[in-house]
C-alpha cells in the first residue's frame, strides 16, 4: 500500500506539462472549431443541415443536451435558431479564450467540455476520434488543479499518464489480433482510403510489400510496448518521439490533421509530465 501511495503522491516541482496541455488543447479546439465554421449549419443545425435533426435524434439519449435541443428549446421561447447558433459560437469561443488564458482553468474547462459535448453529440454520426480525445482532454483540464500544493495534482497526473499508456497498449493490441496487420495489407488499405488519397500519392509503396509489412509490424510494436518503454527514464523520450513521428505520418498521409495533433499533444504532455517530479521524501 505504501508503494501505491508513493507512486501516486509524488512531490511536484512544476506544472509546465499542465500549462502546455491547457494552451495546446485550447488552441487546437479553437482552430478545429473555426475550420468547420463554413459548414456549421450543414453539420449541426436542426432543419438546415445535410441530414435533419429529426432523422438523427433517435440516437440521442434523453440525458444528453446537445445543440439542436438547445436551439429547439430557445425557439419555443421565441428566440430564432440563428440567434441561438450565433450565441453558441460566441460562448464557445469566449470560454475557450478564458481556458487558453488559464483564467479559472477548471471552471473554464468544464464549460468548454459541456459546450463541446453539446456540439459533437448533435449528430453522433459526424463524430470521430479527435472529438473523444478533445472531450477527455477537457475533462482532465476540468479536474486537474493548477495549484502545485494541491493533493489532487499528483494522482490525477498519474491518471493521465496511465491513460495514455492504456490508449497505446490497446491500439497495438487491437491491431496485433487482426491478421492484416501482419502482412502489410492494413497499412496498404489505410493509405488508399478515399479520404486519404487526395493529397499525396504514395501508391509506389505497393511495389515494396515487405516495406509495408515492416511498417505495419513496427506500428504494432511501437504501440503495444508503449506502456513499458515510456516509463523507462532512459528510453521514454525516444519512444515518445517515435510515436509523434508516427502521428505526423498519419496526419499527412491519412489527412487526419486534427486527430494527429491531439495525439501529439497527449504525447508531449506525457513527456513533460515525466520531468517534473521527485519522489516524496519520507
Amino acid at each position: 500500500m505504501d508503494r501505491i501511495y508513493t507512486f501516486f503522491f509524488t512531490q511536484q516541482n512544476n506544472n509546465f506539462w499542465l500549462t502546455f496541455f491547457r494552451i495546446a488543447v485550447s488552441l487546437l479546439i479553437i482552430i478545429h472549431f473555426v475550420s468547420i465554421l463554413p459548414d456549421f449549419k450543414n453539420l449541426y443545425s436542426v432543419n438546415e443541415g445535410v441530414i435533419g435533426y429529426n432523422v438523427t435524434d433517435i440516437f440521442v439519449p434523453d440525458y444528453l443536451i446537445n445543440l439542436p435541443k438547445i436551439i429547439i428549446f430557445f425557439d419555443t421561447m421565441g428566440i430564432a435558431p440563428d440567434t441561438t447558433i450565433l450565441s453558441f459560437k460566441i460562448l464557445f469561443l469566449a470560454a475557450l479564450g478564458t481556458l487558453l488564458l488559464g483564467y479559472k482553468q477548471n471552471l473554464s474547462a468544464l464549460v468548454v467540455l459541456l459546450l463541446q459535448i453539446a456540439l459533437v453529440k448533435s449528430n453522433s454520426y459526424y463524430a470521430y476520434g479527435v472529438d473523444f480525445f478533445t472531450s477527455m482532454s477537457l475533462f482532465y483540464l476540468a479536474i486537474i488543479p493548477r495549484d502545485l500544493s494541491s493533493i489532487a495534482l499528483s494522482p490525477f497526473k498519474r491518471l493521465f499518464q496511465i491513460h495514455v499508456s492504456i490508449v497505446y497498449f490497446f491500439a497495438g493490441f487491437d491491431k496485433i489480433i487482426g491478421t492484416n496487420w501482419w502482412n502489410g495489407e492494413n497499412i496498404w488499405k489505410a493509405i488508399n482510403l478515399p479520404f486519404a488519397t487526395n493529397t499525396y500519392d504514395i501508391t509506389f509503396l505497393g511495389h515494396f510489400p515487405i516495406l509495408l509489412t515492416v511498417f505495419g509490424l513496427l506500428t504494432v510494436i511501437l504501440e503495444l510496448t508503449y506502456p513499458f518503454f515510456v516509463w523507462q527514464p532512459k528510453i521514454s523520450k525516444y519512444w515518445i518521439y517515435l510515436t509523434i513521428l508516427m502521428h505526423v505520418g498519419i496526419a499527412f498521409i491519412l489527412n487526419l490533421y486534427f486527430f494527429s495533433s491531439i495525439m501529439i499533444i497527449w504525447n508531449l504532455t506525457l513527456l513533460f509530465s515525466f520531468n517534473n517530479e521527485k519522489p516524496t521524501q519520507s
Binding site: 476520434g129 472531450s135 477527455m136 492504456i166 491491431k175 492494413n186
Partner: peptide, 15 residues
C-alpha cells in the same frame, strides 16, 4: 458520454 471515455482505442485495429 459527457467525458469522451466511451471511446475505444483501436485506431485502425482490428482491421
Amino acid at each position: 458520454s459527457y467525458t469522451g471515455f466511451e471511446t475505444g482505442y483501436g485506431f485502425f485495429g482490428t482491421n
